[in-house]
């Protein structure tokens, strides 16, 4: 049941009391998962914005959320020093992995058999990547990871699985992006194209391209395997998230002032719009306004016909593209 008259109008998902930290679609795109600085991640139907449920159990800000390939399990990482695995259908907590410090990033590998999370470098504990085998109940119960990759130097601010579970792509606080081999823990490739912290990393639908969003006001495109820098998308504010369209040669960038400066900035000059750039020409061609705080996370629907943005204002906005967007062609 849904209101078709309103299909072009954005749907606001207001299930969080605090700033959204990360949003993700599942593989088919019928569900949206949202994590916020309050302690309850939510899951929504993307078509009409109906809330399917929330995951109760965390005691701190939830920094990251991910869902596996067949939408059976959900993984969340929180500042309460734990990473939790949930059953997606019932919302029950399956496992809690206790860590020494806050979990900053987490993710399922493509098969859904492995999970990884990275921890913050706080309270005397180093920044580490932990990898678990979800299929091994012993590991999940004891909380003993099958692989620990210590990260020396600047901490990880964003991390995702690379293709074929061979490596983890990590963005560091220093602006460096590197590969960590999942078998040996070795640092394989490293590039430093950004001058400030990496806020977000996302892959294209076929995993061939990597998109990075940085505090240095740019987003960049790389070849996933070689980390060769290909394109740069420039803005005038920190970029918190950048996503690649699975349908068109477009990218969308979201960002804005730092949270601490938001109260002193009006919506109009705050530049909280989602900004659309052409993938190849690096040229901005469209904007969608709506948030009254910086956009913290962006995600395209896997069919490329809608996208969602989660903002510091606590709202998730689901936008369905209007026909103008599909008719739009770049003039050469």
């Amino acid at each position: 049941m849904c209101d078709l008259n309103e299909i072009l109008k954005p749907i606001l998902l207001h299930g969080h009391e605090r700033a959204i930290t990360q949003i993700k679609y599942n593989r088919e795109g019928d569900l949206i998962f949202s994590a916020a600085k309050d302690n309850q991640p939510n899951v929504w139907y993307s078509l009409n914005g109906e809330r399917l449920g929330s995951f109760k159990g965390h005691n701190g800000a939830v920094w990251c959320i991910d869902v596996n390939w067949d939408t059976t399990k959900v993984l969340t990482g929180s500042a309460d020093n734990s990473c939790k695995l949930w059953d997606c259908e019932t919302g029950k907590n399956l496992n809690t992995l206790d860590v020494k410090n806050a979990v900053r990033t987490c993710g399922f590998s493509y098969s859904g058999n492995l999970i990884m999370y990275s921890t913050d470098k706080t309270m005397g504990h180093p920044c580490e990547i932990h990898i678990f085998d979800v299929g091994d109940p012993g590991q999940m119960k004891s909380g003993e990871p099958c692989m620990i990759i210590p990260v020396a130097g600047p901490k990880i601010t964003s991390a995702i699985w690379g293709p074929y579970e061979e490596y983890i792509i990590a963005g560091l606080e220093s602006g460096e992006i590197c590969h960590f081999d999942t078998k040996t823990g070795e640092k394989l490739n490293a590039v430093k194209e950004h001058s400030k912290q990496i806020n977000d990393l996302q892959l294209s639908l076929d995993f061939s391209m990597l998109m990075s969003a940085s505090k240095d006001t740019t987003a960049k495109l790389y070849d996933t395997t070689t980390l060769k820098h290909m394109k740069t998308y420039k803005t005038e504010r920190p970029v918190n998230s950048a996503a690649l369209s699975p349908l068109q040669e477009h990218v969308v960038l979201g960002g804005g002032q730092e949270a601490m400066e938001v109260t002193t900035t009006s919506t109009r000059v705050g530049k909280f719009d989602a900004r659309f750039y052409h993938l190849i020409f690096e040229e901005e061609f469209g904007r969608v306004k709506g948030h009254f705080g910086p956009i913290n996370s962006l995600a395209f629907h896997p069919d490329g016909k809608s996208y969602s943005s989660g903002g510091e204002d606590g709202y998730v906005r689901v936008h369905y593209f209007d026909p103008e967007y599909f008719d739009f062609r770049f003039e050469f």
Binding site: I11, H14, R51, F285, R287, V288, E324, F328
Partner: peptide
């Protein structure tokens, strides 16, 4: 209470040219 459909349509602003 949780799902609000915005009354105004917000379309993408094509700004290139």
């Amino acid at each position: 209470a949780n799902t609000i459909v915005q009354v105004e349509e917000i379309n993408i602003q094509i700004i290139l040219n």
